[in-house]
Design a protein around this nucleic acid. Sequence first.
DNA 1: GCCGTTTTCGGCCCGACTGTTTTCAGTCG
Length: 571
Amino acid sequence: MLSNRDVAQVLDDIGDMLEIVGENLFRVRAHHRAAESVRSATEDVNVLAREARLTDLPAVGASLAERITELVDTGQMAYYNDLKEQVSPRVLELMRVPGLGPKKAKLLYDELGVTTIDELLDAARGQRIRVLPGMSAKTEENIISGIELVRTGQERMLLSEAYPLATRLVEALRATASVERADFAGSLRRMKETIGDIDILAASVNPAAVTSKFTTDPSVARVLALGDTKASILTTTGLQVDLRVVAPAEYGSALQYFTGSKEHNIRLRDLAKRRGLKINEYGIFDVETGRRIGGETEAEIYAAMDLEYMAPELREDHGEIDAAAARTLPAVVTLADVRGDLQTHSTWSDGLNSVQEMAETARELGYEYLALTDHAEKLKIAGGMTSADITARRRVIDEVNSKMSGITVLNGVELNIDGEGDIDYSPAILREFDVRLGAIHSGFGQPREQIMRRLRRAMENKYIQIIAHPTGRIIGKRNPYDVDIEALLDGAAATGTALELNAFPNRLDLKDDNAREAKKRGVKMSLGTDAHMTTHLSYMMYGVAVARRAWLEPQDIVNTYPLKKLLAALK
DNA sequence: GCCGTTTTCGGCCCGACTGTTTTCAGTCG
């Protein structure tokens, strides 16, 4: 069965192939927009096709609905197959090299028979490209360095890898005399779970001084480009960072533009146009008079459009512009709203720090409480607690609580949901805990029915208050087990079980769109870092980012509540 | 190919850079 992702990939491929054969560019774009719509849809494309509701998806009209239905029904799409007769999928591969678009990729394929990136590299090194029309020795150089870039920066990096580096680079710029303002922009500012490259924006009246300072930062391995207003570097850790320097008066419009998302900006400009306004990276203008209305700050842009200011995390064209116009944007949660961490581990299972050390760090972070949710007995690999361990740890927790003020350590546990959906311990032991998580740690390859039976039984279990990392995915390493998200969310709503937003950077599970769907059903969520050492406690910001992208407000998240209210809210 | 408070036809975000262009095509974000 095809997933939304698979269908989206086919649509993207069709878009690329149409571009290669020289089709109308708006038709090309329509396919890419539909691909994104399918990819980010919360409903299963198979269900939508069966119920003839595909056209409910934005950017999917009658024509694409019919072709998508054919694809999910038969696994084939005649239109796609015909295109593949005309355009080799190999050409699409070549287009992944920066600098190679549809025209050049096709030319290389047609004239030189280049079908892989390896062959492309050989052709460039063998100086066989320069003889083609519009190509030169310079083109060959660009292709070679483009391939290098594709290979080094192939994988998108985790938000947690990009964020600290970008923060440091921005702070270095802000400390530079000629810099008036500096921020990172792009997907990093929107706090997406993975980042392609890092975009930084600065305001200065002396831009050349800024770019030259930037390219001499100690973290620079290679300068990819250096001009008066733009520079690109490759860091020693292999990340690409682009800097753009603008005039102070244009800073807000540039920041808005470079923060994106592309889809958000398209929607915004479309709306501007219909109101007789024009937005570009230099400001917002009245089309008729040409008068500049604003652009020094982002707030000016949105205000001139009569829109509420939108946090960067919301700018995905997922309804935020309509909500901003209607003044119904959510007051999204902030890190400061979080009063405690609800998934952490200590030396009593597989953590690296003691109860005392974890409590001290939690207090430094300004928390009111910290749930120590060490693994339960059955998870032997993680040093799960025996009943004797539980008693002993309880004494330690009581002692820490009695001598430390300003923080309450909660006696928690991460129970293991076994292959049948059962959990550890007798009711007598279970009742002792203040906070009880349930999680799947095995059987990731089981069929959907079995996974869902386990999850359903766990949610129906009166002792399990929170399902931890509900889909089990590890970004870049492991796909989620076969969860029926709709059924999971419905089950959580029906049983009053909270779902975790696991903040560990390679988990981020639930992910943003699922969490947003959960909120719509009234499901409460719980932020936990899954910290296995004190330094992990600071990962909370990444979980908050997911919550913000999911439009969650403090009342949707149980650990924004004061302690008493938290304990009352948990099942 | 999609879509509608200008429109069911005729638009569709918009600007910059690169390279080889003698006035512009291709690519990118």
